[in-house]
Each structure stands twice: as C-alpha cells, then as structure tokens.
Amino acid sequence: MTKITFIQHDGEQQTLEVEKGLSVMNAAVDNLIEGIDADCGGECNCATCHVYVDDAWMDKVGPTNDAEEAIMSLNPERKDTSRLSCQIKLTDELDGLVVHLPEFQY
C-alpha cells in the first residue's frame, strides 16, 4: 500500500492508503475524491483529471509527457506543477505524495 494526500481548492485534506501501481486518477475516482472528473477514463485524452503536484514532490513526479503536454498546453488553468493524474503511477518512490486539486477542471 502507499499513501497519497489530496488537498482541495478550499484547503480540505484527505489522505488515502491505496494499492501500489494505481494511477493517482484511479486512486481519486475509486475513493470518490471530489474534483477529479476523468471523463476519458485514463487515456490522457481529456485533461479533466488535472492536479497540481506539491512543490516538494515535483522532482520525483517529473514533468508532463508529450501526449499530456499536447492537451495540457491548451488549459488556461495550467501551472508549472500541472500534471494529468492519470499519467502518474503510484510507485514506492511516491509513497506519501501530495497533490492539490484545481478550482475548476477544464
């Protein structure tokens, strides 16, 4: 198992223990975390599972991949720490990950 914390736009925090290997998006959707729509179901094709990775974790999570970049570059809410949560896999290295949810999904 691995820990992940979601911080809502209004500051509310939820920490979950989930199975390793899941994507951050799946962890959110399976546990009914508000603010993640994931309309396309994890195909990197809609940008409705957008999160801001906590600054302290950005090095370990890494930047957007090419497919993600193509779609995220159109999102007006995008910041340097933006990632699509369907593209982040929960590995050992990311145990304890903290992500922030945007006020609006695209």
Partner: peptide, 20 residues
Amino acid sequence: DKPRHHVSFGFGIHRCMGNR
C-alpha cells in the same frame, strides 16, 4: 455512474472548448 464518460464533446486536443 460516470455520466460524463461519453464522446459527445470529442476527446484529445480538439475536444469541445465550450463543454463547460
């Protein structure tokens, strides 16, 4: 469940800009 899992807005970079 998952009512937004439909293809009316398309997907990818050309997905409907005005969906919201």
